[in-house]
Design a protein around this nucleic acid. Sequence first.
DNA 1: CTGTTAGCGCTTTCAA
DNA 2: TTGAAAGCGCTAACAG
Lengths: 335, 335
Amino acid sequence: MASVSLRDVAARANVSFQTVSKVLNGKGAVTPATRQRIIEAAEEIGYIPNALARSLQSRSSLTLGVITVDFSNSTPALSLVGIEREARQHGLSVILSSLEPDGSDCVRYLRVLMERRVDGIIMNAPATEEDEEVGRLLRTGPPAVSLHDIAGGGVPTVTVESEGSAALPVRHLLALGHRRIATVTGLQQRHSAQQRTAVYREVLTELGLYDPLLVEDGAWEVEGGYAATHRLLDRAPDITAIYVQNDLMAVGVLNALHERGRSVPDDCSVVGCDDHPVAARTIPPLTTVRMPFFDAGAAAVRLLLDRIASRSASAEDVLPVSMVYRASTASPPAG
Amino acid sequence: MASVSLRDVAARANVSFQTVSKVLNGKGAVTPATRQRIIEAAEEIGYIPNALARSLQSRSSLTLGVITVDFSNSTPALSLVGIEREARQHGLSVILSSLEPDGSDCVRYLRVLMERRVDGIIMNAPATEEDEEVGRLLRTGPPAVSLHDIAGGGVPTVTVESEGSAALPVRHLLALGHRRIATVTGLQQRHSAQQRTAVYREVLTELGLYDPLLVEDGAWEVEGGYAATHRLLDRAPDITAIYVQNDLMAVGVLNALHERGRSVPDDCSVVGCDDHPVAARTIPPLTTVRMPFFDAGAAAVRLLLDRIASRSASAEDVLPVSMVYRASTASPPAG
DNA sequence: CTGTTAGCGCTTTCAA
DNA sequence: TTGAAAGCGCTAACAG
């Protein structure tokens, strides 16, 4: 772990360090002989360029900063994988910062990224959607793209269509003949969950089928889905279908229904959301909405690169979702 | 996004830029008056220090490089979360690089990390366990800690006990009275899967119960577990228990058993591994081995920091695992 | 207390 | 074709 610099290579090859720079960057014209000598010298003493110094000079760090919600869950993890892969393919490194659940440390990490002179920032931290200070920094700092709303707008977003992610499953259940359709929601502080719940309400209200008693919070987690279902069943035993706002909660929902002796889909249908890998093999396999989170991450990076290249205008890219039909939905029981 | 430097602040405060440096870093003694003036000036023109320049000078980037296998799956994601959180708590940024499935790009990314002068490297890329070149770089480059074996050794590791992760579940099944115990394995190229399979074989061989026909590969994935179970059942309908090397595959295993009309645990017991969140609510809830992957990531960072501080000797930290008993295991059917 | 002198390792004109 | 000069933004000695 020596500190071999251009100068060391230069000394060994009997040239100036500027010439070494040219050779190692393939710039300028150099005699094949010296070029060869330089390359060998670099090789021999194990020269490794210093990206810090290079960035200082070139005013470009070839780095993207990513600020993300905790990615223990597969949804944000998928977006992160998409971001990382796309960045890598463009030769960019990724500096990763994940936040506390309340997003209170976001401003601090934005600052760290700015100090490190990242070329751009990708946000995936729904907990900060209402944070004005975050919005301000994102508008005035380096180019940024977000996977969710930013307070005050002005930041391009790439999102997964949330209207469809609620409308599709609810309509599917309606088409099957269900009338008592409950929903297990994600954290209602999040815009995406609010929107899904709103669409659920609108669609059912239009048909005179909306009942606030059929809405329960599952907080995005397996146990939340489990507990919410027991509460729903206690309160409204006549429900024949449940729209669950993510697949993880749906696992808990299926378990609770099983415990209560309700067969799925014969006694009660269940639709999830995400198309998590386990959804294909729950018992029964889960009808769900496929959400292109991976693609959203990759698309965000591409959009960010466009912005970096040409300070182009704001954009709002919305990726479409689609239904995946499996065995957890059917017509309601006769009677 | 201007490029405000120390000089700009200095000009505005009518001092030399070196004095500004002192003030902003809380070093040296400065008159409260000028200090105040400098701080205000910095504030007014929105000065943001340049970490690149600082690192160039201080020869420390306050950055950790992480090289990880694709973390779409929750196991590596958990370790990554642990790494990131621990690093953050120590004021270090994390540069994230994920690899192709075969790990062929590892050497390239190691080099990128070295060019960026990271202060240390955390490896979580089992695909490179046999790669001699990776081992060499890790031994000669910046301090490194790995979550798996490194070819040639010499790199401290923090691992999750793999012997116990196989011995515990198999012994549990034996204690329940099972004699025909199958296993669905992870990718056999990985040391961790090889070790689990070896322990499974040893424990059963000792009792004269080992049968190579009862071993099937599930490749770590839901569908792999599903398909492996069907193959097992076709070949050896008399099995009464399955040790599945991760919970994701176990979801597929439960589904396949359900399809074949085998009730769990009455007709067949199932033990998983990982204690993935869904394991608590599969049908039936899964008996499994809790693997402290999050802790392993965090511990690796702490070990790395020790090494950075004091080039201390190699170490091999092994974190213990523990059984989580749920409803998927019972005594074999009578008869 | 404050400013000057010296680099950290690199890229980029511009002369020779 | 090569090298010298200049500077990216910063920190660290040391002198004033």
